[in-house]
Design a protein around this nucleic acid. Structure first.
Length: 570
DNA sequence: GCCGTTTTCGGCCCGACTGTTTTCAGTCG
């Protein structure tokens, strides 16, 4: 996958154009760097299918640059600028407080090219003597470098920190220092990964509230502290911004700080077109405030339906809201059970009884037990004999209770040649057959795609498990022609899984939205390997919401769900 | 360099905070 590399290259170009004073080119490059970094699909595949222009912000000039990069490994414009600015922007830009301009000043005055040079210059007390810098700047840079080196990855899966965030929120709420406190930013939009935590509050005594906040035990370092904005580093390794807001403009502020940036830019441009101005204090016409108390007011005065936070990505939601055609996205409370769980019969850590009890406690109407098939040896995958015994056990259990129905399931290996890991006579007994690629993945798109399509056409699968195979921060999506796979799913009544396991989050939301344009159903699964991981079903639901799915698209939200076979409802 | 329910040209979001400044530029979100 070349996305990360390309995204870095355009950031690099943006930095150099900034120094050159070409503000708008810089803006264009930065936009493209951002939209490429959000893509789950390989830009290389978009190149092959001649769809580069479909990437947000890619016009003719940037399209040419991407093609040049793929065909020659270089972009001449960048090579030219690199002659002039031989600087490692990538590492230097990660230091808080260093932007392109200040990096350029340090480069011109001290010859600083990279992080090592910067550390050396600080050690020699050279920075504080550069015009525009001073002792405070030097000290701040020294601190930033220290924090950069001690911190790990910049974004972490939402599901791995969401409990911590909620706990932190509830501690703040019960402190009595705030009249209102809300989560904003990408965590409120339920993006699959978060880079920092944005909080909004109002208080009768803002200054005392701010002091309370910076004095918390969870706060490791205070980065900035003003009257309305405080920025800190939390001990759980995330930055946290707290904005202190007048309660009269809470709705406008909540809208503003929930983002996304791209969504807000669209809204503010709309405001301008209507002779208005939108900022975190409200929607204004001249000096008159038109809306500020609630988010709904702001959207309404702009002529829009209230857009759910999960959809605010500038991916068509503004147009839909304008035409009052926003989807009624599936509700968390509509999800009646889990389509993907494991037990200690294979690689899980909880027993069958423990998992079933936990499902019952969660008031699930159904739960599919989908242990691995025999070829996945590392997970102690089960053969036909073991599955038959397991199926009899499930039948026996279902006789004893009406409160939950346990579905006979399997996460089935799709073998290298696209054939299936277990015989049809066994698969016909199953309620849920989730076909999965785990082993012997090819670098060739065609090979992977044909392998999947052959399995889909077998007539035995109900669902494709974690379709892209990506692991957040570890492994990119497999190279697959997703449109061809979606088409095959549509033709053969096979559903797509949305896997809520934190490092998977697969399908990613943008591909969910793309798949929705086909007549495909979706199953949500936690992929829980122990009872305490069943909560990941909630995050699968979050992805479904971000992918614009309605309850009719999601089998788990459907009265047929407990009958098992996904193909029954298509 | 991109983009279009006014526009294929002329715009391009907006404000807080910081440090180094005598009024503002750079950075950040």
């Amino acid at each position: 996958m070349i996305n990360r590399e390309l995204s870095r290259i355009f950031e690099d170009l943006a930095d150099m154009e900034d120094i050159e004073g070409n503000r708008w080119e810089s803006l264009a490059y930065r936009r493209v760097a951002n939209s490429i970094s959000l893509l789950a699909i390989d830009v290389l595949d978009l190149y092959h299918s001649k769809q580069l222009r479909k990437i947000e912000g890619v016009g003719s000039s940037i399209e040419k640059k991407i093609m040049e990069y793929i065909e020659t490994g270089k972009i001449s414009k960048r090579e030219d600028l690199k002659e002039k600015y031989n600087i490692d922007f990538e590492s230097l830009r990660k230091i808080q407080g260093l932007g392109p301009k200040r990096i350029a000043i340090l480069h011109l005055s001290l010859g600083i090219k990279n992080l090592d040079d910067l550390v050396e210059a600080i050690r020699n007390d050279q920075i504080s003597k550069v015009p525009g810098f001073g002792p405070k700047s030097q000290d701040a840079l020294k601190k930033s470098i220290k924090f950069y080196k001690s911190s790990g990855a910049d974004r972490i899966p939402l599901a791995t920190c969401y409990d911590d965030i909620q706990e932190f929120l509830s501690k703040l709420r019960t402190s009595g220092k705030f009249t209102r406190l809300e989560l904003a930013g990408s965590a409120r939009r339920l993006r699959d990964t978060v880079g920092d935590i944005d909080l909004l509050c109002s208080s009768d005594d803002p200054s005392a509230a701010g002091d309370y906040f910076t004095g918390l035990g969870e706060v490791k370092n205070v980065i900035a502290k003003g009257e309305t904005k405080i920025s800190v580093l939390l001990s759980l390794g995330l930055n946290c911004d707290l904005r202190i807001i007048d309660s009269n403009s809470f709705g406008a502020a909540l809208q503003y700080f929930t983002g996304s940036k791209e969504h807000n830019i669209r809204l503010r441009a709309m405001a301008i077109d209507g002779g208005m101005k939108l900022n975190e204090y409200g929607l204004f016409k001249g000096n008159d405030s038109l809306a500020s108390l609630t988010e709904e007011d702001v959207y309404s005065k702009l002529g829009l339906e209230l857009v759910p936070p999960e959809l605010r990505e500038n991916m068509g939601e503004v147009e839909a809201a304008l035409q009052r055609r926003l989807p009624k996205i599936v509700g968390f409370e509509e999800i009646q059970g889990d389509y993907h769980t494991h037990t200690d019969a294979t690689d899980g850590h909880s027993t069958f009884d423990e998992m079933v009890e936990a499902g019952k406690k969660l008031k699930y109407k159904f739960m599919a037990i989908t242990d691995h098939s025999k070829s996945l040896k590392v997970a102690n995958g089960m053969d036909e004999k073991r599955f038959q015994a397991r199926n009899r056990k499930i039948d026996g259990y279902n006789e004893t209770t009406d409160s939950i129905r346990i579905l006979k399931g399997v996460e089935l290996e799709i073998l290298k040649d696209g054939s299936l890991d277990l015989p049809n006579r066994l698969l016909n007994e199953m309620d849920v057959v989730i076909g999965a690629l785990h082993q012997q993945i090819s670098d060739h798109m065609k090979t992977n795609t044909l392998r999947l399509i052959k399995a889909i056409r077998s007539g035995m699968l109900t669902t494709i498990a974690h379709p892209t195979g990506r692991l957040l921060g570890t492994r990119d999506a497999y190279r697959i022609d997703f449109d061809a796979v979606f088409e095959a799913c549509e033709e053969n009544d096979v559903a797509l899984e949305i896997n809520g396991f934190p490092t998977r989050s697969d399908l990613p939301y943008d591909l969910v939205k793309r798949a929705k344009s086909y007549k495909i159903s979706f199953t949500l699964g936690s992929d829980a390997h122990s009872t305490n991981q069943l909560k990941y079903l909630w995050f699968a639901t979050a992805i479904a919401r971000r992918g614009w799915l309605e309850s009719k698209n999601v089998i788990n939200a459907n009265p047929y769900a407990s009958k098992g076979l996904a193909r029954q409802i298509n």
